[in-house]
Amino acid sequence: MNLFDYLFNNYQIVLQRTSEHIIVFLISWSASVLIGLLIGILITREKMQKYTNFVLTLSSIAQSIPSVAIIALVFLFFGIGKLTAIFSLFIYSLVPVIFNTASGIINIDKTIIEVAEGMGMSKKEILFKVELLIALPTIFSGIRNSAVINIATATVAAVIGGGGLGVIIFTGLAHYNVSIIFAGVLPVSILAITIDSILAILEKKLVSKGLLYEEGKL
């Protein structure tokens, strides 16, 4: 039996599962990036700062819960289906975005913020011109992490009706059929690596070179 058999003979199924995977990923991930950034920014505002550490601790605990458990938990409440899958992916990939946004912002040297204030920047200007830009490397690693986790978890979410390439992989594993497994493994790996590479390029474009030194990348 040839490794590529299933892939070539059923490329339409593979394509359909791939697009399903991408759609589920895009919906849940972009929601978690948007809302994660928002929460991360909100809890680091002056009035909310007493909760920052609490949220950081909470999200670091949440990050130690296996994705499988979250998927199963969401299933218990909402049953099987695409929406359940999307919701559980959203929840799970939300955590690294919140964590990295908040920790990136609160770890900025306080004197830099004070100087920005002293120069007459408004709170909004400080957020957009200083805080977010300096925290960007950390935020980006959260966003990338979230994307990779999302794609991987989306594979597992096939078991609660999320569809996608996980369906092919689990079918292959269940039948111990190497050709079917491969037809799922290849596109999902390419997908994950491609998305991460795109984000890496974006990161390189957006993050100031002045921050590379602090990141230890020089």
Binding site: A152, V178, I193
Partner: peptide, 19 residues
């Protein structure tokens, strides 16, 4: 890059290689 590969896929790859 290896870590970007979703875990079920990596299990699949192991099955393929070790089969």
């Amino acid at each position: 890059i290896l870590m970007t590969i979703p875990s079920p896929a990596l299990f699949g790859i192991m099955v393929i290689i070790l089969g």
